[in-house]
């Protein structure tokens, strides 16, 4: 007499574990493999290779110290870091005004106008927006025409190839990142808190300082670090709008590769930038944790 125990499923149909809706690890690996290969080849390998190149030819540290001792690259490094800090402060300040207005305004046209403003630099393309700013700031351009028309200056100012031009250009490109990152922080501030504070007698400035600021401080710090990180790598803007007068690391790297043919030197400059970037990313993660960063990206 057959008992229940003797009834076995057909051979090969025995499951060690219960059936799960998710596919197994092998399928997962197969699906992820193309991207993994691409990332190993074109992200991990280059990042390691740049340090190998910088130390090649029997001089393991020489080229790194050169970056700091050579007056040109030392100045470029200092410019890159100070200008990027300036860019971070300016972009986050302006982005915060836009993001906060987007969060609080009730007017539909203001919202449409500000979203357009925030996103225009995104879809203009790197070269085109720098070219447009180049036209705006040119000696015979409209900004100078306006200043002279108003009688502010007598002769055209040289606005191009200045710190102002570079900071304007980079901030312009990074404004969308700042607005999107800050907006994701600001939307979590409950608007009823603002009206509560106002009912209790706080003015607008006081509400911002005592109610909003403590709630968004962390997010703003992450945004500052993120903008700084994205800014130090800019290549097109410092070359197109900064020229040789305000050299960035990008300008130095460009010369090392295309004029001096000093590729290992360029690798050392790049390696220093990567180390700085790594420190900034680590700081962001320590400040906020990966979750906040993911949400803000």
């Amino acid at each position: 007499m057959a008992t229940v125990e003797t009834v076995r499923p057909a051979k090969g149909r025995v499951r060690a574990r219960p059936w799960r809706p998710e596919a197994g690890p092998v399928t997962g690996l197969l699906l992820a493999a193309p991207m993994l290969v691409a990332i190993v080849l074109f992200v991990a390998f280059p990042l390691v290779q740049v340090f190998v190149d910088a130390s090649s030819g029997g001089v393991p540290v020489q080229r790194y110290t050169d970056v700091f001792t050579n007056p040109v690259s030392r100045r470029a490094l200092a410019t890159t870091l100070t200008d990027s800090a300036l860019v971070a402060v300016v972009t986050v300040a302006l982005g915060a005004v836009i993001a906060w207005t987007l969060h609080t305004t009730a007017r539909r046209w203001v919202r449409v106008l500000l979203w357009t403003t925030a996103l225009v630099p995104f879809w203009m393309g790197m070269i085109i927006k720098n070219y447009a700013i180049y036209l705006l700031l040119a000696a015979n351009g409209p900004l100078n025409a306006l200043l002279m028309g108003l009688g502010v200056v007598d002769s055209p100012l040289s606005l191009l190839y200045t710190k102002f031009a570079v900071v304007y250009g980079i901030s312009y490109s990074l404004l969308p990142y700042a607005v999107l990152a800050l907006y994701s922080v600001f939307v979590q501030v409950d608007r009823s808190l603002l009206s509560s504070a106002a009912v209790l007698g706080a003015g607008r400035a006081q509400v911002l300082a005592t109610v909003v600021a403590p709630l968004v401080r962390g997010g703003v710090l992450v945004a500052l670090a993120l903008i700084f990180l994205l800014s130090i790598g800019f290549y097109v803007t410092p070359i197109m709008l900064g020229g040789l007068q305000t050299p960035f690391m990008a300008t130095v790297i460009n010369q090392q590769v295309f004029s001096l043919y000093d590729f290992p030197g360029a690798a050392a400059s790049a390696a220093i930038l990567l180390v700085i970037a790594f420190v900034v990313v680590a700081t962001i993660l320590a400040l906020a944790g990966g979750k906040t960063l993911r949400r803000m990206l």
């Binding site: 990042l47 740049v50 990008a250």
Partner: peptide
């Protein structure tokens, strides 16, 4: 990854 550094790295690879 900072683009100016990334492109040097990619050039080598």
């Amino acid at each position: 990854i900072p683009m100016s550094a990334y492109s040097v790295a990619m050039y080598s690879v």
